[in-house]
Design a protein around this nucleic acid. Structure first.
Lengths: 174, 174
DNA sequence: TGAACATTTCAAAACTTACAGAAAGAACGG
DNA sequence: CCGTTCTTTCTGTAAGTTTTGAAATGTTCA
């Protein structure tokens, strides 16, 4: 596939964004390519387009599938696997966020609870309190997040629109 | 400083979390140490406690300061710089989130706008639409985020508590 | 001013991660 | 059943980053 200037720019930027958030550059680029092309693409075409080894694409696609961000489809008269991603950005964001919660936040919650327990046993009062603050924060954060994940894009937009009023409504100050 | 088992566990975990989110392990560990110790700590003590080079600590502290996550204080009768971090986890989260927005989301918004502009010129209708969806998503995301950043920890907790009712209240479905 | 202490900068070493290419493994068609 | 096509796994190498230790710079106080 031949990329337009726009597409190149998008893919490169997305790749860089990935690296900043702990996601492999190639993985992010493959995802960007699937998103921007908006049709099922076979792995060798991805490899050629991005100028990376075919094997790399295979690994990247596998990882994307692990995040739920890519799915295999088939095209009539072609026995190669083709790959697609979602066109719904909010849905993709939810997938990634939920997965990161599972992989990173949940273990952190577990660690904090364990550490608090131990600090308690060992009589480390000050440290325990700090850990408790952190635990409380993460619990609030994930609860908030769970609320948001339930929302449709439209719902989210409305919440944002009325967001300013929201705080007053609930009687909570800045 | 001698670390207890609890403290070690916390610091190590925090370091790993850092790496997953694109933050240098040592930087995250230094931050964890400052947080858990809850008092001003001089750089050489940090180096010794974490068993990393003094220079490394210097760099890490500088980076933490760049995020607004560490500040210099002084202790009477000691002319070394001492370093502290906040005890308010929500405040720290806001700092990091705002900074990441500035460093990563804002450039992404700019890129998307530019790309849309160009796609428009070049008549790439399909690509342009996809980019527009993404732009819209990021704009909603940042707007939502800005609302949250205004909230106090207490306010946030209340929003979460009533969050379920919120959607009904606004008449927005799942 | 200069000795002692503190901090930062920098180049090189150590480590980690990403990648290409080779090889192995499946799936398919004849 | 064998050759072809497609996909995945494996391994050495390249690229990138982190970390160190030494040197340079800055600061303080006598």
């Amino acid at each position: 596939m031949n990329l337009t200037t726009t597409e190149k720019k998008f893919i490169l930027h997305w790749g860089e964004m990935g690296t900043r958030w702990g996601i492999n550059r190639t993985v992010a680029q493959v995802h960007a390519l699937l998103y921007i092309s908006g049709r099922p693409v076979p792995a060798d075409e991805i490899a050629e387009t991005l100028s990376v080894a075919r094997s790399n694409v295979s690994t990247s696609l596998r990882e994307l599938q692990g995040w739920g961000l890519a799915k295999v489809t088939h095209v009539l008269g072609d026995r190669r696997d083709h790959f697609e991603t979602f066109q719904d950005v909010w849905a993709m964001f939810k997938l990634v966020a939920q997965e990161r919660k599972r992989r990173e936040i949940d273990p952190t919650l577990a660690m904090l609870k364990e550490a608090i327990e131990q600090a308690n046993k060992d009589g480390e009062k000050a440290a325990r309190e700090r850990l408790e603050h952190m635990l409380e924060f993460f619990e609030t954060l994930t609860a908030t997040f769970d609320e948001f994940v339930k929302m449709s894009p439209g719902a989210l937009r409305k919440v944002v629109k009325y967001g300013g009023k929201l705080q007053k409504l609930l009687g909570v100050g800045t």
